[in-house]
Design a protein around this nucleic acid. Structure first.
Lengths: 109, 109
DNA sequence: TTATCATTTGAATATTTGTTCATATGATAC
DNA sequence: GTATCATATGAACAAATATTCAAATGATAA
């Protein structure tokens, strides 16, 4: 018979959050898991920006950027405000910075 | 003609890291972007564990877990040590904890 | 109203990715 | 050597996803 893990399994299993929470957490990280979106977030570190400025900066179509902004908005990482025809996007809160900073620390070792 | 962004673009563009760095960063986050891998990491918060114990805990095949551990190892989020036939996995460093904690903070608002 | 600018949206396509299955490796005991 | 346990690996398939294209919405100005 295989070796026994019952002791560890009960200890570890009791500490684990609900599946639903863990799913939400992984969905959040997968929003950071695309270089286009990372670039958008990084751009917004400095200034709020309109969609077409981001598109110009990243040399991508405005449609592609808009699709990605939708995901970022849905994950509550960015917010937007309208000014005439233009819509400005900005970082929703400071978790974005700290999460990206932690990631940078990890890869620069 | 379209509206002008040259001022913002030059300010923001100069702050942006190299594409290669941003790609590496997004690859790191995409490793966190899967609920199976998040569960594995969470399990390892408590104890080092062997592959078959993780498989048993998550009710998944040993092969699926092994594939995911390979990704986690490659991202330097986990390390392993061999003890006879058994290979124990453990968290490679504390960035894992802090990144996951920041993510948890963001979703619990 | 018509025209134009800024943005969003939906469908289509190509690529990526997670799991399964079957097989291979590696270590121990006999 | 053979047998068994623990893990890793490669190919195949299904599901998820990023971008493009075409069309729609929304706001302003003439």
């Amino acid at each position: 018979m295989k070796h026994d893990h019952s002791k560890i399994l009960s200890a570890v299993g009791s500490q684990m959050p609900e599946d639903e929470v863990l799913a939400e957490l992984s969905e959040l990280f997968s929003v950071f898991g695309d270089s286009t979106r990372i670039k958008i977030l990084w751009a917004l570190f400095e200034h709020e920006m309109c969609v077409c400025a981001i598109a110009e900066l990243l040399k991508m179509t405005q449609s592609a950027i808009s699709h990605q902004l939708k995901l970022l908005r849905h994950a509550k990482l960015v917010s937007s405000r309208r000014e005439g025809k233009t819509i400005y996007y900005f970082l929703a809160d400071d978790h974005v910075r700290s999460i990206i900073n932690q990631g940078m620390e990890h890869i620069s070792e």
